[in-house]
Design a protein around this nucleic acid. Structure first.
Lengths: 157, 157
DNA sequence: AAAATTAGGGACATGAATGTCTTTATTTTA
DNA sequence: TAAAATAAAGACATTCATGTCCCTAATTTT
């Protein structure tokens, strides 16, 4: 019993909901931009299956950060400027949404966990965090969009 | 600016607070048990720098799960039975605290993210999650206690 | 100019995780 | 036997992320 359960390990959400929506929205917007279309809030919420009003907030943040561009009025919506998609890294989206609460979080919650003063989990956890850091900082929005455009990846359900 | 900030990546807490306290408490209790002492709630809260009443709740769960043993009354407290420390894996503590909300969480929050129906981040995130899973399932409580006993690792600040 | 369509923004609502308080139960000590 | 020390348990309080509502601003269409 325990063995079976443990096979599916509990992994807490890595990103906040707001951040998940932001990344998914950005991918959808970028894919629409590649096709020369703007994405409206309503389209986005439908396509990524997210609450509309809440998603609007996160899009505002992405917009203020210059990651996406918004246009009001009929046929307005959101877009990603062409050369931006390859420049924007996922880490920048995370930063835009979760603000400057930027830190290296100890897995056991110590405030001052470091090489000199490590928690018992520190050395084991380090390669995992570094791997994640590596990926998030080196993956561009375009990298994630291409699979969606080709139909190999999905944004909802 | 952005570059500097990005160096310290935002990593959301992997474990809940309750779970962090539980792991830290279990490590402390096990280290005391190795010395033949029971650890009282008060001692534990002091040594791992956690809120006493809240920590009590998590200890109750560990106790009900049989990971630790509690004794009431004067000179009572919590202990880890000797042969248990090497048997208990960190994944079991996590399971005891966060209950059976066991799942393989999609990093972008999709409900049905899998090899056949992957989110855009799936393939990149997979090795990170597997690495983490590996570690949490193969690290025993004793593994984490030994560094504390030898003074190489810490449980607070 | 008026109406329709879209994003922006503030205020409020909800829910879950975290944290506290108080009382009870059990055991040991005096 | 009484008192002290300890964990157990339930009820309550607080905080924060998440989510909703409603009105405003800007743009396009009619």
């Amino acid at each position: 019993m325990s063995l079976i359960l443990c096979f599916n390990l509990i992994i807490k959400p890595m990103f906040s909901k707001a951040c998940e929506y932001a990344i998914r929205a950005a991918i959808f917007i970028a894919s629409e931009s590649e096709r020369g279309r703007r994405a409206s809030l309503k389209d986005i919420a439908r396509e990524i299956d997210s609450p509309e009003a809440f998603t609007a907030k996160t899009l505002q943040k992405l917009s203020r950060s210059g990651i996406i561009v918004s246009t009001k009025g009929a046929h307005g919506g959101f877009e990603v400027k062409q050369d931006m998609a390859t420049k924007i890294k996922i880490s920048e989206i995370v930063l835009a949404i979760d603000g400057d609460k930027v830190y290296t979080r100890c897995s056991l919650g110590l405030h001052d966990c470091s090489e000199n003063h490590p928690c018992p989990f520190h050395s084991r956890f380090k390669p995992v965090r570094n791997g994640l850091k590596e990926i998030v900082e080196n993956t561009s929005l375009r990298d994630l969009t291409s699979g969606l455009v080709s139909g190999d990846t999905f944004l909802k359900i």
